[in-house]
Each structure stands twice: as structure tokens, then as C-alpha cells.
């Protein structure tokens, strides 16, 4: 068991290294231009957002629509640390993440008693309140936007490594006794409590870790964009992240990673459709949910690939 786990980890790291090497090579060869390297950076940020939300919404099973709020706390805190305290980038990033984590705990303690739709709507409310606060504080420069905090010499590597670390940490959490406790809460909270799991503690823990990495993503986003406006972090951003998690599969890390990458890159190809892009996105979203939930995927596949047998598990 121990050997297999280490083997899996090593294989995953080698895979990450190969992907990294390939991207760096393509960048230096000029195949991936400035525009596309920006998209790859956004893909890394979205991977961090999706995998971290998956811990709270997928593994823990708590439906939240406030991830963009934690992201904005991380983004503004790290930007302000760079701007006013002149801290080095990585330290600012860490402080931003810790701030997001603390806000996550602060919000999590009272709200995590609620379930389902109610939790969803209350986290949305916190998301919007954070946005209004950012909009009205003088230090954040409100709607005019915050600028001038960008650090020099931060390239793609930082974003990529951050994404890898996030995935690794969440994988480790899930594969430990702590992770099993978290998953058991998702499955049946009462049974989990009566199996001796301190459920409140683990809910807050999962939520805090999730918020921490949302803060990391926020700090990276700030560094990449070089300008922050509160409207970026409204609930539509939270919805976007949640959609990545759901399409990738709740409690499925690989799925989250793939969904985040696809949903970052795909819209770029849809630019040709301009005005119709969001419309198309909406249609795809509805269709994807129905296909996924009704388990139509295998059936549709079988229509196109007739030789394959189909199993539909209910």
C-alpha cells in the first residue's frame, strides 16, 4: 500500500515535470506566444480555484458560492502588502492566503451549520458583502481599481508550481484519516458524528484549507493582472468556479483539473462567435448538466461508437 502510494506520487510528479518542461520549451521556442502564455497562467489559477473548491464542495459536500470572495481577500491583501509594506512577492502571497483562510474560518463557523441551498445563498451573500466592502474602502481604491503592486521577475514557473503544490496538498489531505473524516461528513453527517468524528472541526478545517488556496489563487491573479477591481470577484466568478468543479465531478481532483483547463482555453476558441459566446456557454452548461445527471453520456457515446458495449449504472 505504502509502495503503491509513493509510486503514484512519483509518476504524477514526473508527469507534472514533463508538462512543465514542454510548456517552457514551447514558450522559449516562441510557439506559445505572449497571449497564450497569459491563458496558460489563467489556467493554472483556475486549477487552483477549482481543486480547492472541490475540497469544500466535492469532498466535504458543502455547496458554496463564495469562493470568489476568498479569492478577492487574497488578491487585495497580497497586493496591499506589496504596495505599502514592500514585502517580497511570495511573502505577500502567503499573507494574502492566510488572510483568506482567516476570513474563511470566520465565515465558516456560523454558516456551516446550514446545508444545501441555504449554505449556498449565505455564502453568496458573504461574497457580495466582501465585494461591497472592497468597493467602498479607500485603501482598495474602490471601483477605480488598485494598481502599481506588480512584482518583477515572476514568470510562468511560479503559477505552475503553485498549482502543483495545491493539487498535491489537497491530494494528501484527502488520502489521510482527516480526508476520510471529511468525506464521511459528505456521505452522512449524523453517522459521521456517531462514529466519533468531530464534524464541526473538520467542516471548518476543509473550508479553511479551501479558502487558503482561493487566497493563493487571488494573490497570483493580482500579480498576473497588475490591476484589481472589485467587480471581478462578484458571484458570477464564484459560479464559474463551481461550474468547473461540477463538470469535472464532485470529489474528483483529476476532473477538476481538466475542467478548469478546458474551461479556460475553450472560450478563447469561441472568440470568433463574439456576442454569441456567453449564449453558447449557457446552452452548453444546461446541456452538460442534463447529460451528466441523466447519465446520457454513455448512451450518446454508443450512438457514435457502435461497437462498444454500454453499461449504465444507476
Amino acid at each position: 500500500m505504502k509502495k503503491k502510494q509513493i509510486k503514484d506520487l512519483i509518476i504524477s510528479f514526473i508527469a507534472a515535470l514533463v508538462i512543465y518542461g514542454l510548456i517552457m520549451f514551447l514558450m522559449s521556442a516562441g510557439v506559445v506566444d505572449y497571449y497564450w502564455s497569459g491563458i496558460l497562467i489563467m489556467a493554472c489559477i483556475n486549477v487552483i480555484l477549482a481543486t480547492s473548491l472541490n475540497l469544500a464542495s466535492g469532498y466535504l459536500g458543502q455547496l458554496t458560492l463564495g469562493h470568489a470572495g476568498f479569492m478577492s481577500v487574497g488578491a487585495y491583501t497580497s497586493a496591499l502588502c506589496s504596495l505599502y509594506l514592500h514585502l517580497p512577492f511570495l511573502l505577500s502571497l502567503l499573507i494574502g492566503a492566510i488572510a483568506a483562510c482567516l476570513i474563511g474560518i470566520l465565515i465558516g463557523i456560523p454558516t456551516l451549520r446550514l446545508k444545501g441551498d441555504y449554505l449556498c445563498i449565505i455564502t453568496l451573500a458573504f461574497n457580495e458583502i466582501i465585494r461591497v466592502i472592497m468597493l467602498n474602502l479607500s485603501i482598495t481604491n474602490g471601483a477605480k481599481g488598485l494598481m502599481g503592486f506588480q512584482a518583477m521577475n515572476i514568470d510562468f514557473s511560479v503559477y505552475f508550481i503553485s498549482a502543483v503544490i495545491t493539487i498535491y496538498v489537497i491530494y494528501c489531505v484527502v488520502k489521510s484519516r482527516h480526508g476520510r473524516a471529511i468525506i464521511s461528513i459528505c456521505e452522512d453527517e449524523t453517522a459521521s458524528e456517531l462514529s466519533g468524528i468531530p464534524t464541526s472541526y473538520y467542516k471548518i478545517l476543509a473550508f479553511a484549507i479551501s479558502a487558503f488556496f482561493a487566497g493563493v489563487a487571488g494573490g497570483l491573479y493580482a500579480q498576473y493582472m497588475g490591476m484589481l477591481v472589485p467587480s471581478t470577484f462578484d458571484y458570477n466568478k464564484s459560479v464559474e468556479i463551481l461550474v468547473m468543479v461540477v463538470l469535472g465531478g464532485l470529489g474528483n481532483l483529476k476532473g477538476s483539473i481538466i475542467a478548469a483547463i478546458v474551461m479556460t482555453i475553450l472560450p478563447e476558441y469561441l472568440r470568433a462567435f463574439a456576442d454569441y459566446r456567453m449564449l453558447l456557454y449557457a446552452v452548453v452548461l444546461i446541456a452538460a448538466m442534463i447529460i451528466k445527471e441523466k447519465n446520457l453520456g454513455p448512451r450518446i457515446k454508443s450512438k457514435f461508437f457502435k461497437n462498444k458495449t454500454v453499461e449504465v449504472d444507476d
Binding site: 459560479v239 461540477v246 454569441y276 456567453m278 449564449l279 449557457a282 446552452v283 452548461l285 448538466m289
Partner: peptide, 22 residues
């Protein structure tokens, strides 16, 4: 589950909004 329905409803909301934008 409520999550699937929620996301579909958000999809419908985007759909109508963008249809009227166009």
C-alpha cells in the same frame, strides 16, 4: 441533487440574459 438543478438554473439565467443582450 440540488447542485445540478442550481447550476442548470444559473445556466437558464445566463441564457435569457444573453439572448436579450443580443
Amino acid at each position: 441533487g440540488s447542485l445540478a438543478v442550481l447550476i442548470t438554473a444559473i445556466g437558464v439565467s445566463y441564457l435569457l440574459q444573453n439572448l436579450f443582450l443580443i
